[in-house]
Amino acid sequence: MRPIIGITSYVLPASWGVWTDLPTALVPHDYTEAVRLAGGRAVLLPPDDLDADVLDRIDGLVLAGGPDLEPSLYGQDRGPHTVTHPDRDAAELLLLRAALDRDLPVLGVCRGMQLLTVAAGGSLHQHLPDVLGHEKHRPGPGVYGSQLAVLDPGSRIAALMGEDLTINCFHHQGVADPGSLTVTGRAADGLPEVVEDPERRFVLGVQWHPEVSRDHRFFGALVAAASKELTQACADR
């Protein structure tokens, strides 16, 4: 059996065939294909803040990228560059907190890393150019910034990355305070690019987009952790 990996999804207007601008639950295919190539079975999780019961039926969770988090979640007023989807915030925080309670394997990508940070009591910079004085983390519309990560020796991320430290990021917000999480990787300008929770089996957040290159290092590690979750669940039955 392949482990089932839930992927949080956007709800945005989309068009296909004769249909135009229909509200649609979607994620870029890169996410689902990265999970499939790593040996998992991807399912989409549209925003739903009624309960977290779906966690009974999945073995791992991917917090996908997307819009900014509502700043009130970390004690700030909304800045002029911040664009939020509060319905997604509420649904994903419910799922994430329940997943952490269960020690379910979690991979946070870009916004997903920021969600992990906020759930851990941390905070964000709302617009990095105001803090860093440059736009290397989001060079332009639809253009990924290519950088080299600086990783902590002995960390999970260092073991996964090996010698290839190139990251492809697209974000205008970033982690200011990681809360209870551990920062294990940074960009050259010092901005946190990786957070981990060493107290849990597999909780990893990266500020870049490994799904774009179908990076087996990350999705393979998630699927491996989820496979152990599945094996344990079958044994418990």
Rank of each mutant, 00 (worst) to 15 (best):
M1N: 09
R2K: 14
P3Y: 08
I4P: 02
I5D: 01
I5L: 02
G6A: 10
G6W: 07
S9G: 02
S9M: 05
L12W: 12
P13A: 02
S15V: 07
W16I: 07
W16Y: 12
W16L: 01
G17I: 07
G17L: 01
V18R: 15
W19F: 14
T20Y: 06
T20K: 09
T20V: 13
D21R: 15
P23F: 10
Y31K: 00
Y31L: 04
T32V: 12
T32L: 00
A34G: 09
A34R: 01
L37G: 00
A38D: 08
G40P: 00
G40N: 07
P46M: 03
P46F: 00
P46D: 05
P47I: 02
D48E: 08
D48T: 02
D48F: 13
D49P: 01
A52S: 14
V54I: 15
R57K: 04
G60D: 11
V62L: 00
G65N: 11
P67K: 14
L69M: 06
L69Q: 07
P71V: 07
Y74W: 12
D77A: 11
D77Y: 08
V83K: 12
D87F: 10
R88S: 09
D89N: 05
A90Y: 00
A90S: 12
E92T: 04
E92M: 06
L94E: 12
L94C: 06
A98W: 12
A98L: 11
A99Y: 07
L100Y: 05
D101W: 01
R102H: 01
D103T: 08
L107C: 06
L107H: 08
L107Q: 02
V109A: 00
R111H: 01
R111F: 04
M113V: 02
Q114Y: 02
L115R: 09
L116H: 03
A119L: 02
A120E: 03
A120N: 01
G122S: 07
G122I: 03
Q126N: 01
P129Q: 02
P129A: 06
P129Y: 11
K136D: 14
K136S: 14
G145N: 05
A149N: 10
G154N: 11
S155H: 10
I157G: 04
A158L: 05
G162C: 09
L165C: 01
T166Y: 04
T166K: 12
I167V: 15
F170Q: 15
H171N: 06
G174T: 14
D177S: 05
D177Y: 13
P178I: 07
S180R: 15
L181F: 10
A187D: 13
A188R: 10
G190K: 01
E193V: 08
E196K: 11
P198H: 08
E199T: 15
V203H: 02
L204D: 11
L204S: 07
W208D: 14
R214H: 15
F218Q: 06
F219Y: 14
G220K: 03
A221I: 12
A221N: 10
A221L: 07
A224P: 08
A226V: 01
E229M: 11
E229R: 13
T231D: 15
Q232H: 10
Q232A: 15
C234H: 14
A235H: 13
R237H: 11
R237C: 05
